[in-house]
Simulated assay, not measured.
Amino acid sequence: METLKDRFHQYWLLARFDKPIGILILLWPTLWALWIAGNGHPDTLVLTVFVAGVVLMRAAGCVINDYADKDFDPHVDRTKLRPIAAGKVTPREALIVFAVLCLTAFGLVLTMNWYTIALSFIGAFLAASYPFMKRFTHLPQAYLGAAFGFAVPMAFAAQTNEIPLVGWILYLAVLLWALVYDTMYAMVDIDDDLKIGVKSTAILFGKRVREITGGLQIVILGLLITVGVMQQLSWPYYGGLLAASVLAVYQQKLIFHFDKPNCFKAFLNNNWFGLVVFVGIVLAYGL
């Protein structure tokens, strides 16, 4: 007989709390924005709310993604054991878990200023609608970037009550970064996606995926350099970007032969990309 503990374990798996890599990849750009908006000293309450919000909204995004893909996941090797696909959690339960996570996150946002609260509705809409985009467009990875990068303008709004130009430039860099790493992730599923009719940038870019993602990585680094110049950040920031550029080259090496395990490694490596940029920002403000 299933216990309450077993049920909550399935919800834990549904929200992907057992795989924190997604939390980290979303957390790094949020921390970039908070440190820049706060000139190296983000408000403690704002920092706490945004870190918790990233954890909750990433979990909510995973839940609504599995709900949206409930008819696809059973046919994909990598996803067929997910709780909904495996019949361990019902679609109705998933919607309840999604609602609880979103409402909890919204409760945290209510401690922020009205500008941030207003922006949270846009962020929530983007996060909830993203999983359905793969049915209609070959650019769901760009939509993912718009959704989960939205913490960047929200962070500026919470910290400064405005979104300056540098905030939008950073948002664009984060959006493109998500497009790149989620394309690498989509390369792992490309055969299954073609079979079941799901769209992705990995399919759209085809044999040019390496050149296009490589070009986008150059643009991302250019945008991050622009942020550094606008904020007059000192040399450790550029040291962080140099380390990030080395990691970008390594990621291109991993995806070069379209080997699926290595494409997944390239996706995972973006955690370190986010980390080295953040370390550069912290050290730049520290000096």
Rank of each mutant, 00 (worst) to 15 (best):
D6F: 02
T90V: 02
Q217T: 07
R210V: 03
K134T: 03
A284P: 05
M187T: 04
A33W: 06
L204E: 08
V198T: 12
F150H: 11
M187R: 06
G222P: 04
D69H: 09
R82D: 01
T160S: 15
A128M: 14
G286Y: 04
P42T: 15
T79D: 02
E211R: 11
M112Y: 07
I25G: 07
Q252P: 01
G38Q: 11
W235K: 13
F125N: 04
D182N: 12
P261L: 12
N270M: 10
T116V: 15
V276G: 08
K265L: 10
G22K: 04
W235S: 14
F258I: 07
G222F: 01
A186W: 07
L101K: 02
F258V: 06
D77L: 13
V152T: 15
A151G: 14
L26P: 06
K88Q: 13
T226G: 00
V198Q: 10
D18V: 02
N269Q: 08
T111S: 14
A186Q: 06
A52C: 15
A202V: 13
V198R: 08
H257K: 08
H138C: 03
T44S: 12
G222V: 02
N262W: 00
L45N: 09
V100N: 03
F148A: 14
I190S: 01
I203D: 11
V249W: 15
A94S: 13
A147F: 13
V246M: 07
G206E: 05
Y143E: 09
D259W: 03
A59T: 11
Q159T: 12
G145W: 12
I23V: 14
D69V: 08
G107I: 15
K207D: 15
I21P: 05
T79H: 02
G286I: 06
I169F: 01
T213L: 06
L247P: 11
F150N: 12
F8Q: 00
M133C: 09
W114T: 12
L176R: 01
T30N: 15
Q231V: 06
A94W: 05
A146M: 15
G206K: 06
A186Y: 06
T3Y: 07
N270E: 07
V277A: 04
K195N: 13
M154K: 11
A142P: 08
G197T: 10
D66S: 03
L103M: 03
L221M: 08
L194F: 08
F205Q: 09
L45S: 08
A94I: 11
Y130V: 13
L247W: 10
G167N: 05
G280M: 03
A124R: 00
L45I: 10
I163Q: 12
L176N: 02
W235D: 14
P20V: 08
Y181I: 01
T226Q: 02
L275S: 05
L275W: 08
P42S: 13
A85I: 14
Q251E: 10
I218P: 01
Y250W: 14
D182S: 13
R210N: 03
L216Y: 00
I218T: 01
P131I: 09
K88C: 00
A118L: 15
R135K: 14
V89W: 02
H9I: 04
Q141C: 09
Q141G: 10
G228I: 08
D77C: 00
A173K: 09
L170W: 06
S245H: 01
L176Y: 03
K207T: 14
A94R: 08
